[in-house]
Design a protein around this nucleic acid. Structure first.
Lengths: 181, 181, 181, 181
DNA sequence: CGCTAACCGAGACGGTACGTCCCGTCTTTAC
DNA sequence: GTAAAGACGGGACGTACCGTCTCGGTTAGCG
């Protein structure tokens, strides 16, 4: 709303991406925003409220791009996964993700945010898979399981290995889990 | 080695599991171990050294149980996944995992540990899948991709949702990714 | 200035008098003043800055009492010495003196303070002696030397013996050094 | 006695002279002596015992030099004062003196040592003055007072000013306090 | 136009944890 | 059997943030 509010929310995300949740410092957020410490506390009371609020900022779902009428379900699934892989490689979300995973373990508010974020993405994937399965584009199977395996592979590679999934890897992954073209 | 060393390493893991990496306090670890703060610093110098060392403790791979000679590759894969699912539900590793994921993002030592830990588990899975594929127990496919999808699903459900994979979920998952029985 | 500042300065002098310079503890000063340790460090940064500042407190010279017009130079000299003897027996200055002497050896700031304090007192004495000498109340002689001998006796007895100069001892001392009445 | 004992006593005096009583560190004394910390504690238990013992080392009175038969009492007094002035300018005693003054205020053992040291020196001076007074070399007067004034001037200038008494200053001082030649 | 209210910065305050240094005690090694 | 090495619990150091608070100063809106 007020000018400093936005500067602080942005500063909070920067801080989170830069030093993580553990070393996150209100002092430093205020400095990033070029704002007095007291102003910060006037708006958010404590660290967690600020972080939780800043995360909402990330929550704005970009409207799903108009899908061409003739896009196959497989293409759609691949798009969703490519977008996820991309988000986990480059965006601010990616930088904050490990901090979020950790914070979620400690704080119900953050947990809610993280799970909700994940749920929305996953649901889109489930829908696309279900459509493809119905159309016979994919091997028959539970679309929920498929979504876990596909999303999981992307998150797993980002969080637990040094080699995140790249866009080119996506088709192979879809082939393996949902059935060859 | 010395008595207090072990008490402190154990205390460190407890602390990590209890309050996470962000709120991890040397003060509190020393208290948990019933040991003077200076003793703690005599051994580890700072927070990260202690955590890194404590993690090595988790690193001891339990010898793979003697596999019955007649176990199928599918059974083996399912065992590995059930063990992983179990580890991510109950063990000390699970409690520390979010803290680890976060710490790994900030510290190379922890990152190395986490990736190494993940790599070893994954390799066992890859081998089992490859064997099954060779024997025709599974649908043909790249065992690396299959391992990512299977491991990924388990980690994803633990870290990003409120519903971790339970042992009973494993066969369905294996069916979906590697091919129906 | 701020409330706690004064409480801390007073506490510092108490601490200095009570346990000396060697055992002087910031922790304990803060406790004496009923103030948080961080407040103490916010104002002074470290032990020496605090002590140096606290000493300035002692530096306020009480305005010389209106000397009766008919006071002789000898009476004036005796007054000054009695005042010194008294200060070295009872006052807070006396309690801090040994600590000061030691601290002065290690720290230039304290040294400056101590020497300045001594110089001012001594100068008043030199002036009084010079006046008396000019008036023929005292035996001819260098007033600086006389001041050293008189001041010296008082400090010497305070610092190096168990028997400080008492007010009654002053006239005899003046007789011996400056000439009999 | 044992080799390390002596090294430690010497080291203690060095340390005292170097950093004073306040910053005196057992750690550092042991290091100076090239000896383990535990060896130090085996001999002295704590800081004060060590310091007290080390000071005894300084206590060895050099045998009074054979006074020439024809030396006057004034010459003797001047010799004693010159020796004192010299000791307070150069020797290890001088370096330790401020530390001693301070320690004496806190610790009875050190106080006893310091006062005793002072008493012995002063007595020699009193005797010399008394002799000179008896012989008519000095103005009549109480030799105790004279000794306080003379010793006092020397200590005062050492401890409270930046200008210690130098050997050349001695005759003038004696003239002023005990009577002109 | 001037008053009031909000928002803001600066920073004092009591607190807690950090990592460092030294204390005095003790056990364990090794010469 | 004496000395070294060094682990141990303790406690003060000076630093950095925390979250709370009071204090002036600016700006805006409203009377």
């Amino acid at each position: 709303m007020t000018r400093s509010r936005e500067a602080l929310l942005a500063g909070a995300l920067d801080e989170l991406a830069a030093v993580g949740y553990a070393a996150f410092s209100m002092e430093s957020v205020a400095a990033r925003a070029g704002v007095g410490r007291s102003t910060l506390y006037r708006h958010w009371g404590d660290r967690l409220q600020l972080i939780a609020d800043a995360l909402e900022t990330l929550n704005v779902q970009p409207a799903p791009p108009d899908r061409p009428a003739d896009e196959t379900a497989r293409e759609h699934v691949e798009d969703l996964l490519r977008h996820l892989a991309d988000a986990l490689s480059r965006s601010r979300v990616s930088a904050c993700l490990p901090a979020l995973v950790h914070a979620a373990e400690q704080d119900a508010g953050v947990r809610e945010f993280l799970h909700g974020y994940s749920r929305r993405r996953r649901q889109a994937l489930v829908d696309a898979i279900a459509e493809g399965t119905a159309r016979g584009e994919f091997r028959p199977g539970d679309p929920d399981i498929g979504a876990d395996a596909l999303s999981g592979a992307v998150f797993y590679r980002r969080l637990m290995t040094a080699h995140p999934v790249r866009p080119d890897d996506v088709p192979v992954l879809v082939d393996a889990v949902l059935g060859r073209r």
